[in-house]
């Protein structure tokens, strides 16, 4: 496989695509948003349970490509248990990572597994795939619109 393509479809991404974590609508949640990418028809529903400023639970449902599905899966895995502010900070960092604005290695390594999405920055057409679940999560945390679209 071409190196650039390998950077995009890393093993972690393929694994989360195949077996997404935190998939399915939970019984209890107090924040929700629906994300939709009109360009490709991908959509993701994000359900969050916030208690005392902590993301107690976060799950997702929807259909999308390998990049968006694995992004949602990794996002939910990493955000769970974090403070709302921490989740929002991660949103900012993730956004900068996939749009190629983040090159501080220390910050990237702090992001743990999310760093696998760095390859997306070389695929402008795919940035929205990776960022859709994050935009949806942010919207859910703020309970803004119920249906949002991703802008890189």
């Amino acid at each position: 496989m071409d190196n650039e393509l390998k950077e995009l479809y890393q093993q972690v991404i393929l694994d989360h695509n195949k077996s997404p974590r935190n998939y399915g609508k939970p019984e209890n949640y107090n924040h929700f948003a629906e994300g939709y990418n009109p360009l490709c028809g991908d959509h993701v529903d994000v359900y969050i349970k916030v208690e005392n400023g902590i993301v107690e639970d976060v799950r997702f449902e929807g259909s999308g490509c390998a990049i968006s599905k694995s992004s949602a899966s990794l996002m939910t895995s990493i955000v769970k248990g974090k403070k709302v502010e921490e989740a929002e900070k991660l949103f900012d960092n993730f956004h900068d990572l996939v749009t190629g604005k983040l090159d501080d290695e220390a910050v990237i390594s702090e992001m743990g597994k999310l760093a696998v999405f760095q390859g997306v920055r070389d695929f402008p057409a795919r940035v929205k795939c990776a960022s859709l679940p994050w935009h949806t999560m942010k919207s859910a945390l703020h309970d803004e619109a119920t249906k949002i679209t991703s802008e890189p």
Partner: peptide
């Protein structure tokens, strides 16, 4: 099991240009 977008990106690396999406016919 494979999303059209992923097919499109991988074929692009083989030099093949295809369209993926709803083609303005939702």
């Amino acid at each position: 099991g494979i999303h059209p977008h992923d097919i499109g990106t991988i074929l692009d690396f083989e030099g093949i240009a295809i369209r993926t999406g709803h083609h303005c016919t939702q």
